[in-house]
Design a binder for these strands. Structure first.
Lengths: 124, 124
DNA sequence: TCTCTATTGATAACGATTATCAATTATATT
DNA sequence: AATATAATTGATAATCGTTATCAATAGAGA
């Protein structure tokens, strides 16, 4: 066998799924530590990476600060506020990426689209 | 007055412009240090940020590793090889992002598009 | 139950970048 | 040209996010 069902891994997955928004590893760790103060931060990082590779969650690399984690695993785009730093899912209609075959022999496997600007709160 | 014309700043700009590809701060520093071993790495980082803000060059945040710098300042997209880590400019026809107004009140100022996959060399 | 290996917890190490601060230097003003 | 002054530099410490290390622990199959 290759991966085991540890209670930590389950706990981390459940926690990510219970959190709204796009929490980073630190926030996920803090939430878990409220009830399980003995968990190690390394375990959280390790399992977030593992769960991403397993396709259970998605790691979101943004242009600034820590990586975030997303329970949505389907392809969708993000909007990041340059002022408050929060990220939001872009409405399906907001952005569409059209790929053509003219990629000079580069084989595209995935697409990362980040819309940077001002969120409604920070626009005021 | 607000910004001064230091020889370091000019040197850094010239060096970025002379380098092909998408060098990171470390590579730019090394190139400069070949002829100007007294320059400080902090000066390189500081000026790369400044020059980006001034619009002379463009900082490119990629999903992995150090930020890169680009002499092209017009909007264009990048393709990053997940194997060798190199990034390439996407051909104009390769990807087009269509933005609609349906962004839930989020005001989009700029767009960052990264196509991740395998470059021709690594595909073999 | 025993064995084996994935996983954990604790912490050190790492890479990239920014902060600090005294010394220097570019520029406006005299 | 000499002076004043504030931006900038160089050197280095500090920071942040993350990964590496490694002995101890604990799932899961035999």
């Amino acid at each position: 066998m290759s991966t085991r069902n540890t209670i930590q891994r389950k706990l981390i997955l459940d926690t990510v799924r219970s959190m709204c928004g796009h929490p980073d590893a630190e926030q996920i760790y803090s939430r878990i530590a409220e009830n399980h103060p003995h968990i190690s931060k390394a375990t959280v990082y390790r399992n977030l990476n593992l769960l991403s590779e397993m396709g259970e969650i998605k790691k979101v690399c943004v242009g600034e600060g820590a990586d975030r984690y997303d329970l949505r695993t389907d392809e969708h785009y993000h909007m990041r506020c340059r002022k408050c730093g929060r990220i939001f899912d872009a409405p399906d209609a907001a952005a569409r990426v059209a790929l053509s075959g003219a990629t000079d022999g580069f084989e595209v496997e995935s697409v990362n689209v980040e819309l940077i600007g001002l969120c409604p709160d920070c626009k005021i």
